[in-house]
Amino acid sequence: MHAIAEVAFEQHGNPVSVIDDYSVHAEYNAKKFAAFRMGDIDCSIVTQGDRRWPEFGNGGQPWFAALLVRQGWVTVQQDGRFCQTRPGSFCCVDGSRPYGLEASASCEIAVFRIPRGMLRERVGRTEPYTAISVDRNRADGLVMNTYLANVADVAANEGLRDLHRFGVHTVDLLVATISARGSQRGERSLHREALLCRAKQAILNNISSPDLGAAAIAGELGITQRYMSSLFSDEKTTFSKFLLAARLDRCIDMLSQAGQGHRMVGDVAFACGFCNFSHFCKVFKAHTGMTPSQYRARFNLVLT
């Protein structure tokens, strides 16, 4: 899946082409993908294996991609920004410039690739729209996320031959959705964006430390805690909320990996920086609707 499923887009089926065993590209750990075309737009539905999928692009590609997360999570870094996207929401990346992307184990993504020139005709510069996550719980994201999910489901399950009719409409709807987010983002300086990106990455790098706090991260960045708090408030969150969500995501990822099946749930929690097991179980259930053991049982993992 080099360059966001580049190989998948070289094998368009008409109708949909589906490959159940993608082990020929085992270094990307893909279990399955389906590829289809909607006029000028390409789409691949990629299902990951039991380990993470990192990808780093050097740029020079002629496409702009919307990544709809169907299962697991995806992080994107580009233009000095960072975002993490969860199921039911999508994020954006521009293949013409360097980017970093990581998908969780057992992740499923629908990747919609749009010709960059087609998007530039509508929005001009694409920089304001990269590394943004459009949440389906937001009013501006509900329509687009639902639309992309339905298109991907119909195409993958039905193999429709006339999806080309939806290509231009998809681009127009995407532009309407991301324009508001991009204009809001454009009001913030690139310096603040870069600092927020560095703060988030520092949290992820030190997430196993139970003593990780705002003071340590602010000190690493050379800014005050108050200023760092204002960076997170730009995205209507706080340092503590981002840290908790990051720790939960790391736990969810580990509990779904076969390679972690030998570890007790408590060990996984402590490895992700939780120092109180009861508190961990409480927030995990509030986040997922299941206890950690129930969540792990979904993947048929048995403690050995």
Score class of each variant (00 low, 15 high):
Leu142Ala: 02
Thr47Arg: 13
Pro87Asn: 08
Leu301Asn: 05
Ser89Glu: 08
His191Trp: 05
Gly100Pro: 07
Asp42Tyr: 12
Ala155Met: 14
Val283Pro: 00
Leu163Thr: 02
Gly72Arg: 02
Phe239Ala: 00
Ser230Arg: 13
Phe239Lys: 00
Thr47Asn: 11
Thr177Asn: 00
Ala215Phe: 03
Thr85Val: 09
Glu10Asp: 15
Phe280Arg: 03
Phe284Ile: 01
Lys236Pro: 01
Lys241Asp: 08
Asn58Phe: 09
Phe277His: 11
Asp20Tyr: 07
Ala258Ile: 10
Ala35Tyr: 00
Gln294Trp: 06
Gly59Leu: 03
His12Gly: 06
Phe9Gln: 05
Asp42Lys: 10
Phe277Arg: 15
Asp162Glu: 14
Arg37Cys: 03
Asn145Ala: 07
Gln201Met: 13
Val123Ile: 14
Phe82Ala: 12
Ile217His: 02
Arg226Trp: 03
Gly49Glu: 13
Phe274Asn: 03
Thr237Glu: 07
Asp172Ala: 04
Leu301Gly: 02
Pro87Cys: 10
Ala269Asn: 05
Glu158Asn: 10
Cys92Lys: 04
Gln201Asn: 10
His191Met: 13
His262Trp: 15
Ser133Tyr: 01
Asn157Ile: 09
Ala66His: 04
Ala105Gly: 14
Val93Ile: 11
Ser278Asp: 13
Ala218Val: 04
Tyr22Asp: 12
Gln61Lys: 14
Ile217Pro: 02
Ala3Gln: 10
Thr304Trp: 07
Ser256Met: 13
Asn29Phe: 11
Glu220Asn: 01
